[in-house]
């Protein structure tokens, strides 16, 4: 993605990881319902780096050259593993990932490459299109 403008309205590529929310066991115990208050690990939900000013100030995708549109809680993205076949629909339920921690990180599949972490998925969503034991997955995403 680099310095290109990216609104994620038309399909684009990104890297994704997974996060737990809505309580749970182990280190997830302290994770609440996320920025939107309704996040659950068992639902098809996601975290987006630009849900609010406060969120944007933490994730700073602009530092990686990613110009992301503001989307609020409940907005639906359609996500497909670049190495897979299925597409799933996920709704925004939290703020994340820390895009600026991983600027320039890139993974590819069959000639399609994804750069920068622009989305995090709940375990239910991530495991529907990939394996939880792999921490990073290249995806295509559109609204």
């Amino acid at each position: 993605m680099g310095n290109e403008t990216n609104s994620v309205q038309s399909a684009t590529t990104a890297e994704t990881s997974w996060f737990c929310c809505g309580g749970g066991w182990g280190p997830c115990g302290s994770a609440g319902g996320g920025a939107c208050g309704n996040c659950q690990s068992g639902s098809y939900m996601c975290a987006w780096p630009n849900t609010s000013d406060a969120c944007f100030n933490i994730t700073r995708p602009d530092q990686c050259g990613d110009n992301l549109l503001r989307w609020g809680c409940g907005h639906t993205f359609y996500v497909r593993n670049l190495c897979g076949a299925n597409e799933i629909a996920v709704r925004i339920a939290d703020c994340g990932p820390h895009t600026n921690y991983w600027c320039g990180e890139r993974s590819c599949c069959s000639g399609n490459c994804a750069t920068d972490r622009l989305l995090d998925l709940t375990p239910a969503a991530y495991s529907a299109i990939g394996n939880l034991s792999s921490g990073i997955m290249p995806i295509s995403v559109h609204s």
Partner: peptide, 18 residues
Amino acid sequence: LYRSAEYRSAVGLIRSDV
């Protein structure tokens, strides 16, 4: 493996992790 054409061609059949 995940990036390979061989895995991608079978991904719809695969139901498990390793």
